[in-house]
């Protein structure tokens, strides 16, 4: 005689897998527009800085969305958009060997001479 035991949770109508939210997560990932990272140059002569991210179907739409979401308070004069999947980030777990060796090497900082005012932003 075969006995199968099914556990039910509160609000659960489709077995454990469904109740875990895995299925919902999957469909959102499949249907949502890709994520884009937005970089804004706040004025001429300055670098583009990361401002945030947003969803868009393609680069043209990402550009328009970035204009509407991130530059409505005169934040910028130029925009870059990059699909987030093309950004490769360093691993936080490797932060020790990556960055800490630089901590005690103060002589590498360009702080031992004065920059003339005329140079402006560097």
């Amino acid at each position: 005689m075969k006995i199968s035991i099914q556990k039910y949770y509160y609000g659960d109508f489709g077995g454990e897998e469904k109740a875990s939210g895995e299925e919902i997560k999957k469909t959102t990932e499949e249907t949502a527009w890709p994520l884009w990272e937005i970089f804004i140059r706040s004025k001429q002569g300055l670098d583009h800085k990361h401002a945030g991210s947003l969803h868009a179907a393609d680069a043209a739409m990402a550009m328009q969305n970035a204009r509407d979401v991130y530059t409505r308070r005169q934040e910028g004069v130029s925009l870059w958009v990059v699909e987030s999947k093309y950004i490769h980030a360093s691993n936080p777990d490797e932060a020790g060997e990556m960055y800490e060796p630089a901590v005690d090497k103060v002589y590498r900082h360009p702080t031992f001479y004065e920059i003339p005012d005329e140079v402006g932003h560097m």
Partner: peptide, 11 residues
């Protein structure tokens, strides 16, 4: 329909 377009039409 999505957050970004909500902002766009409101702008």
């Amino acid at each position: 329909p999505i957050l970004e377009q909500d902002i766009a039409i409101t702008n």
